[in-house]
Structures are given as structure tokens and as C-alpha cells.
Design a protein around this nucleic acid. Structure first.
Lengths: 184, 184
DNA sequence: CTATGTGAATTTATTCACAGCA
DNA sequence: TGCTGTGAATAAATTCACATAG
């Protein structure tokens, strides 16, 4: 909306957009302080800034990707990261045929060199390796100082509780659909 | 646990496993009827069956995948689908170089033939195409009788409200992490 | 006049505590 | 005795209604 030159938006418009009621929008925002203008609505630029601050997305975040198979390549090619303030600053794999090659302008490094992350100030990791290697990669990432992990391997991974881990299991997402579909 | 020969499990064990309290587990289950045994716990086989029934995952679900790029290939190679009762029964793409080829034992079909889904009783669709084609594919899927869509394209898609759509935006998942990470 | 922000009312969810059953 | 299932108590979230500011 900001890109389209729109200046402000009302709680009503926002509510329609995300499918809730206006007072829910207002109440939720109010918990973080009032950043709207009465009679007008919410300034889009300001609102975006405030929400980014709340979610700690106000500074560009570097991330490391481990695993450049199909899934990893898809992640690298994903246009959304840059747009949302993420910078895939390093890529690792264990395949000698891939190490040293450039993919999407980033050179693939040897996964055995993960500890170099420590001095590169990268605190977010993305795991896109086969399930049987995921725990081991997670351990290495934690050891290298990573504080948050997005895990695409379909398996339970344990990490120290100071580290936040979010696991995306595609099958689990697909599994949410049948519930909503009237049985035929 | 069932595969490991375990017979039953208590609400306490389940709670520890998923990180909530035992009474939450019991209360939640009780809303669907009591399927535990006092003094013993929950029969694992039975519990699995009951939960699958609630989520409508008790019958094998066929699904169609559209788009066999990096992401689509990753989806196809995903081991989790079969294990959770899903069958990727059809695959489509618009690239002539891919159409007719076999990937993971499934022949890639021409995306212009999506309407053939109607008579194949496939009600779940997975969209793994570039963002600019996603809406058009979604429209075609809905026309072909698909009732639920898992969308991996990073864009808003509108569908009739009888169709359930779940959008997975990898960047949004990554964006959830910084909030939990103490600012350094 | 318009749209926010917020106390109060209402509804929903969680937690407790224990009765009831194997 | 052990663990479930559930009413009652407590806590939290949502909705309402309106005072308030531009």
C-alpha cells in the first residue's frame, strides 16, 4: 500500500484485509501504545516501522543456509527474503561437487567450516538437509553461536533452550487441509 | 512410540513431550470424548486413530502438485507425505522440457490439462510455481474441483470461500525468529 | 463528523482439585 | 494406588460502547 502511494489506513480496512474485526485490530495495537490518528487512521509508514520494531525486524538480519539440495536452492532463489530485510549471508553444503561453486551469487562453503560463523555475526540458521543429518547440523550451528533456527527437516531436533527453533514440516501443513474439507 | 512397541502413554508423558501441562492434554481430549483408560493412560494405537479421525486424516488423501522447479522437486522428494497418509497422485508443469518426464516415479503432465483432475477425485492441491503464476494456477485448480490448497508462492491468492487455502511464506517463518532472540 | 483508544461487560480458555474407574 | 475425566474457580481474550482527539 505504501508503494502504491497510500498514506493511511483505518482499522476497518486492515480488519477486512486480514479477516478480523476492527476493534480487535485497535485493541491489539493499543497494547503497544497508540500509534494511530483519531479521525484519520494509521499512517502506513509509521505502522510498518512500529510493527517491525515490535517483531525486532527493524534491523537487517543475516542468515546462514545449510544444504543446497532442491529445498535449499528454492530457499536461495526465494525473492521474499531481501524484501523483508533478510540477507542470506552464507551457504554451506557437504557435497564436494557443490563446494566452491556460486549459486545465486553466493559461494557454497564446506559444512565442516561452520564454526567460522562465530566471527561473522550470523545468528539465524536455516536447515535444509536430509533428516538424518539435521540434528548434527543443528548442534554445529548452536556451537557456532546461532540463536535461532528455521528447520525444514521433518524430524525432531533438540537444542539448548536459549536457542529458538521453528520446524516447518510440509506434510504437517498439508495435513491441516482435510479438516476443513467437507467429506465427500 | 507405537513402532517401538510402546502400548500406552499418560497425559503427563504427552505433556512433557509437547511442552504443556497434563491437565491441558486431558481437557482437550475430553472435548472429543474420553478415549483413555483410568489408572493406565491412553492406548497409543487408539489415540492415533482417534486423532486422525478428528483431523480427517483417517483416509488416504490424494494430492496434486503444480510446479516442478526446485521447490516442487523438494516437495516430491519429501519422505513425510507417504508416511502421513498422503499420495501425490499427479504432477503438472508448464515447461515442455519437463512435461512427459518421470520424476520420483510420477510423469509430469501439461499444466493446460489441469481440468482432467475433475474425474480423478483429487481434492488437494500444492502450488509451487513462481508468484506471478500462482493466482492463475489457483483458479484452474478450483475450477478442476480442488477443495484445499497449500500455497508456497509468496503472494496473496484469492479463492472462493468454500475452498480452504493455506499459504506458507518461508520468509514469514524466518521472520518469526528475531522476536525470540535477545538483542545483542 | 470520523476513526482511534480504552475501561467495562462478556465470552472463551486455562487451571485446579477431586470424584470415579481400572 | 494411579491416572483419567470433569465440574468449579480462575485467568485471559474478545467484544462492546463510548469518551476523546483530529
Amino acid at each position: 500500500m505504501s508503494e502504491q502511494g497510500q498514506r493511511s489506513i483505518s482499522s476497518q480496512n486492515l480488519a477486512d484485509f486480514v479477516g478480523v474485526n476492527p476493534w480487535q485490530i485497535r485493541k491489539d495495537f493499543s497494547y503497544f501504545g497508540g500509534f494511530g490518528t483519531r479521525g484519520i487512521g494509521y499512517d502506513i509508514e509509521k505502522l510498518t516501522r512500529e510493527i517491525k520494531k515490535i517483531l525486532k525486524l527493524d534491523i537487517i538480519q543475516k542468515a546462514v543456509l545449510v544444504g543446497v539440495g532442491n529445498l535449499g536452492s528454492a530457499v536461495l532463489a526465494y525473492p521474499g527474503f531481501r524484501r523483508h530485510g533478510f540477507d542470506i549471508a552464507a551457504v554451506f553444503d557437504n557435497d564436494p561437487k557443490k563446494i566452491g561453486k556460486k549459486i545465486e551469487n553466493i559461494t557454497v562453503e564446506d559444512v565442516s567450516k561452520l564454526q567460522t560463523l562465530k566471527r561473522r555475526k550470523i545468528y539465524l540458521g536455516i536447515i535444509a538437509v536430509p533428516g538424518d543429518a539435521a540434528q548434527q547440523i543443528a548442534d554445529a550451528l548452536v556451537k557456532a553461536g546461532v540463536k535461532g533456527i528455521l528447520n525444514f527437516s521433518p524430524c525432531y531436533i533438540t537444542v539448548p533452550k536459549k536457542v529458538k527453533i521453528i520446524t516447518i514440516d510440509i506434510a504437517m501443513d498439508l495435513a491441516r487441509l482435510p479438516y476443513y474439507i467437507p467429506t465427500g
